[in-house]
Amino acid sequence: MSARLLPVLAVLSGLLALWYGAVGPMNIRQALDLAERKGVAVQPEGALARQEVSAFVLMARNPGEVARGYALERPRLPTPGQVAGELWATTGEMALRGRGFSKRSLIYHGWITLQSTLAGFALGTALGVLGAVMIVYSRTMEMSLMPWAIISQTVPIVALAPMIIVLSGQAGIEGRGLPKAIISAYLCYFPVLVGMVKGLRAPTREQLDLLRTYNAGGVAGFLKLRLPASMPYLFTSLKVGIAAALVGTIVGELPTGAISGLGARILIGDQFGNPMAIWAALFAAAILAGVLVTLLGGVQGMVLKRMGMAV
């Protein structure tokens, strides 16, 4: 365990150090503007004159003001600590005060995003498994459907996202849950389809022949051989699929003027010039993705162990 943990920790702390180091040059102009407004003498004077000078020169000529860039209220690039503070302030702290589901808390917005993600994941998985069964059992389906499934993933779904929202609005569907779920299902079905086609074809010729000697019909062959054999493939694709579903939901929230959900927090943070809200929502989305994939990994371990397929 530690043999794998140590390198990961080293890489993570390296990235963190890189981020922390970048805050200085990214924020120095803002920090100097602020210092000048407070009457501190800075070199060179005037924001326009500073435009001509590179960030590193500014840092070298105003070493006393660099620290100010690490404590700005609306920084271009917040420090890791600031992001963690904002994340805690909008989740744990609000929950401790019993306002975990207020509209200002990321728990509420994460919940909205999670609902659409799970709905899209369920829809996408169902479509993917259904498509895979049809492709495995019908040669016509395989020849007509498979190329289009591949083409569908080369179409940038974001181009369609505003259309899907408008269409479902015109069709009289209330709320934004369903259109977002459709977008995430669109991204999620493909890995499941490909994985299940592989999985359902995993049984060997001998195994299929053995079933025939038992006089097993098509349904029994599917339930007792093909479906169990496909489980490892299914779970591997489900882990890819749920991450894709989360991406789909956030993409569905971004360009469409949604007001709740993690993607909407990013949008609102952008419109109100509040970068901290964007960063906090981004990290909340990352944590959500990590939790979902880890949970599925746990289910995978349990199911495969019960089926005697654990590696």
Binding site: R4, L9, A10, A243, V247, A289
Partner: peptide, 25 residues
């Protein structure tokens, strides 16, 4: 080898994240 072992899990995780959200920044 050390960096490879550390970077693969991190990179795999980041590749699955909704990075599009970084667009406004």
């Amino acid at each position: 080898r050390f960096l490879t072992r550390g970077l693969l899990p991190v990179g795999n995780f980041v590749a699955a994240l909704p990075i599009v959200g970084i667009a406004p920044i």
